[in-house]
Nucleic acid binder design. Structure first.
Lengths: 349, 349
DNA sequence: TTGTATGCGTTATCAA
DNA sequence: TTGATAACGCATACAA
């Protein structure tokens, strides 16, 4: 049975406003006598008073809550993002509410609905992608919004992500430099920002090296590990299999690893592997994966800073921030000798 | 600019109550004319009406929100728990708010405070452990509470967890059966329910096999991977190192794996490893880990069921549910020959 | 230094 | 079939 300001007012014999001022007003605008202050505080404690944020939010038209939406909490990349956002938001006195959409656009839709109904003060969204009509509702509701990692290039919305094109270039160029030319790309969810930009980088790297793009080597359809598993199995069965695979995300890479182990394919001896994302467990795997690291902490700091800025000043111009990716070279890529390279090229029909 | 029932009432010329009934009353208790219904609905849509859950919660004294507190979202075990709870709660028409305490008891305290201030309808907590005075506040507030995985044995609170003692017994007995007798235990956070019960199982297994417990082989102090890494390095340096390690959690096992790789120790050839928890990535590791699996889905179903029961009937007797763990034998344990076994025993001083 | 009164948006009760 | 009104708990403008 939680007590209210009214209860305390009655018990102490002062008015509700006085109680409110003693307990919540930190502006020191009112000078309440020490006597009253102590009396109120002790009674509040005794009665186990706890502020009702629903009432406060209703009155203030402000909840101090930020809604966060991610496609998959269980993905190490996003759980790192959540941890990082949590810390940043806490600093500013904001709480946050997380929704996991399970990469399902209809859940994303209802998550946004719920969050708006809760009257959150702002929203940070890593969208499933593909479709964006529901994002407009946020703008119509005039709720400050920042998109993170999974953005929409063509929408006029504050957003921060890693430079995916550059990241993919780094990865594929590294493979090319090590002598690979038959390089497969296992995609994430087609039509999403993260996927299309990474695909673009992959193609660009091959183009620049004058390696013909083989559409048979571009496979896959979502960011989960099962996708990596199945597509790797498929690639290994090809008449002329790739010598290297570039995966669009960490879970995909895990799946690829599993498929290789099952098929007795040794990495990097038989097949090289580079992945986008650089989750903590990368270094626990054997071999340690060569990977593209995203600056998660910086990304989250910027997202929160941009959100605060938008909350203060709702009609500043929108910004799109691209952060630098980093290639972490470990042990999953083998140097291909010129000979074996040529062999592969000859094999190509 | 979100509109309110009042706005719609004014625009349509009907009363606020009528608007409310058209938009939110699903009891069909009132018979509103089709004409009015349509008019209200179309205006609501046109004005972008969105219910204010703060106001509803205040009026109803019910929020349809469940608070969930876990020690570490980034731990695969807990992210699986969250996913599972989310699904279960959604079925019952409840939303949920997650807090990550980062294994920090003071954050746990403030998380509980926030959640109570938000007037959640119930709470599911996987506590850091160690200390429990703040849990009493939940009971004082009369908010339905279920503890999951990280419980307090001695508190009269509904709780559900795996049978940790039995799980540890399964793990250690398996090692013993394979010929090991020098078995180390890398603990999680001492003083927590999960850790103490697993330690108890470890000791019991050794006792039953009449293997003398060597306190030097019981090491570690939290559930993170760094702990596993450091303690494994330490164990490997012992004059008489263990032939097998049992780790109290998945992240600890990851750390152990990393240490072994760095030291050129091959698993299972040079060292056997069994871990509590069986996260998805277990099968992506080389070697695949022999592990104790917790029935996460069942655990979460039960937790939610118990919470609903408690919400309906606040003074039913409390229950403590223990679920069956399962040993998944994979490739991280080697059979020790009698000879090498004896060698080790002789080495013991 | 403290009190009174009002309204935030909703739903339930009572009345018509 | 619909409407008026009160109340949920809080913060604040205005009064005293």
């Amino acid at each position: 049975m939680s007590s209210t300001l009214k209860d305390i007012a009655q018990k102490t014999g002062v008015s509700v406003s006085t109680v409110s001022r003693v307990l919540h007003d930190n502006t020191k605008k009112y000078k309440i006598s020490d006597e009253t202050q102590e009396k109120v505080k002790s009674v509040a404690k005794e009665m186990g008073y706890r502020i009702n944020t629903l009432a406060r939010g209703l009155r203030l038209q402000k909840t101090f809550e930020i809604g966060v939406i991610v496609p998959d909490i269980a993905n190490p990349f996003f759980s790192a993002v959540i941890k990082s956002l949590a810390g940043e938001l806490r600093k500013g006195g904001y709480n946050f509410i997380v929704y996991d959409t399970d990469e399902d656009i209809s859940i994303e839709r209802s998550a946004i609905k719920s969050l708006l109904e809760k009257r959150v003060d702002g929203l940070i969204i890593a969208s499933v992608g593909q479709e964006f009509s529901h994002i407009h509702k946020v703008r119509e509701a005039k709720i400050p919004l920042v998109m993170i990692d999974r953005c929409f290039d063509f929408l006029d919305i504050d957003s921060v992500s890693v430079d995916n094109v550059k990241g993919a270039l780094l990865a594929v160029n590294h493979l090319i430099k090590e002598g690979h030319s038959r390089i497969a790309f296992i995609q994430g969810l087609p039509g999403t920002y993260a996927n299309e930009t990474r695909l673009q980088g992959y193609k660009q790297a091959l183009d620049e090296a004058e390696i013909k793009i083989d559409e048979h080597l571009i496979v896959g359809d979502d960011f989960r590990s099962l996708n990596g598993y199945l597509e790797t199995k498929h690639l290994l069965k090809l008449t002329s299999p790739p010598t290297a695979i570039f995966t669009a995300g960490d879970l995909i890479a895990l799946g690829a690893l599993e498929a290789c182990r099952e098929n007795g394919v040794s990495i990097p001896k038989d097949l090289s592997l580079v992945t986008f994302d650089d989750p903590v467990f990368t270094s626990y795997l054997s071999p340690a994966l060569t990977a593209i690291e995203q600056p998660i902490t910086k990304m989250c700091e910027m997202a929160v800073a941009m959100l605060y800025r938008r909350m203060r000043n709702s009609d500043d111009e929108r910004r799109k921030v691209l952060l630098e990716p980093k290639l972490n070279v470990r042990n999953s890529v083998a140097r291909l000798s010129a000979l074996s390279n040529i062999t592969h090229i000859t094999k190509k029909q």
